[in-house]
């Protein structure tokens, strides 16, 4: 079993704030709290460390250096921290953990639940909750050790509730004691008695309506659709369902979407009428008319498209984030989003 441990400059022994700009460093064997892990049964083979300020101010380069060492060492598990209540240290642990997890290497952290590192890890890490300072070390190290040993051995670990790590935003399947119908009736009887329970918490990512566009006559508007609208022949092979990509197509010089030039490959509805007039998928004709009438400033030079059928919500959320980033960078003020 090979273990890599990430620390900041303080816990690696380089100094406190005066050493916060310390460049990334790789050290053999356990350092600082790494010795506590060894005492608990987890031997650290390699310690990597970085100053908190250095990581924050030069994240990309610091991360690249740290990850290159991890790639070279090919550990079975990476641990980081505990960072306790430290915001910068926690953030660095979280970002590093996110990238390590993307390499399919298990990673275990420890920090306060409100640390920015929790969000930065994006659900990739097992994060043991701690108190705000090193007094929590004695309780934290055994829990981290237990998780790391089992993850490194390829064993399955239990749920967040059973194991004591922070929920990662994932939902794993387990067998309940009763079938769903029995649980449903039980929950309903309780609800009728005034005690409301649920197995699924309300979503926390509800989208609030943005404020109105202040001056549409001078705004740049983009057209986005999940209606599967593509050029005839689907040259880029947009999947008809459970799409894993979104695409963009130029609108320069295109006054209207003709039936000869465009079609929908969406597998979720009867496309007959839409294919007769693809403007009903992407309302380019109407948008051009509004531009001509001076009610919209300009149209963005591309439209964005995917087929929104059977697409996992997580994938759709990623599409939205990626398209939104593109649009924001392009200076777009508003979007007309057509759905099916």
């Amino acid at each position: 079993m090979r273990v890599v441990h990430y620390l900041n400059q303080f816990f690696a022994g380089f100094g406190a704030e005066e050493a916060a700009g310390h460049e990334p460093v790789r050290l053999e064997g356990p350092q600082g709290p790494g010795r506590a892990f060894a005492a608990a049964g987890l031997h650290v083979d390699v310690t990597i460390a970085c100053g908190d300020d250095r990581f924050a101010l030069d994240e990309a380069a610091s991360l690249a250096t740290l990850l290159a060492w991890i790639d070279e060492d090919a550990p079975d598990v990476v641990i980081a921290g505990p960072s306790f209540g430290s915001g910068r240290y926690g953030y660095a642990c979280g970002v590093l953990a996110r990238e390590v997890a993307r390499r399919r290497i298990p990673v275990v952290l420890a920090m306060t639940p409100d640390s920015p590192g929790v969000l930065a890890a994006e659900g990739g890490a097992y994060i043991v909750p701690t108190g705000a300072n090193v007094a929590a070390m004695r309780h934290t190290v055994p829990v981290m050790t237990g998780l790391a040993l089992r993850l490194a051995a390829g064993e399955t670990v239990g749920t967040a509730g059973d194991e004591g790590y922070l929920p990662r935003g994932l939902r794993v399947n387990v067998r309940a004691d009763d079938d769903a119908a029995t649980r449903a009736v039980g929950a309903l009887v309780a609800k009728l008695g005034g005690r409301v329970t649920t197995e699924i918490a309300p979503p926390a990512d509800r989208v609030s309506p943005p404020p109105p566009v202040p001056d549409l006559a001078h705004a740049t508007v983009a057209l986005v659709t999940e209606a599967g609208c593509v050029p005839q022949g689907n040259p880029d092979r947009l999947p008809t369902r459970h799409a894993n990509v979104w695409l963009r197509y130029p609108l320069d010089g295109v006054a209207s979407l003709s039936a000869d030039g465009y079609e929908t490959v969406h597998a979720g509805f009867d496309t007959t009428d839409a294919n007769l007039d693809p403007n009903r998928l992407v309302p380019l004709d109407a948008a051009r008319a509004l531009v001509d009438a001076g009610r919209i400033g300009t149209l963005h030079e591309e439209f964005f498209t995917t087929s929104g059928v059977d697409t996992p919500v997580a994938v759709a959320a990623r599409f939205g984030q990626e398209i939104a980033a593109e649009i924001r960078n392009a200076g777009v003020d508003a979007v007309i989003l057509t759905g099916t």
Binding site: L170, A180, E199, I200, P203, V313, A314
Partner: peptide, 21 residues
């Protein structure tokens, strides 16, 4: 459920039984 949570939800749905992800 899905990896991304529920496809849809209304405030009134305060009592849900999960049949798995």
């Amino acid at each position: 459920e899905t990896n991304g949570g529920l496809t849809d939800h209304v405030d009134e749905a305060d009592c849900l039984i999960s049949t798995g992800n």
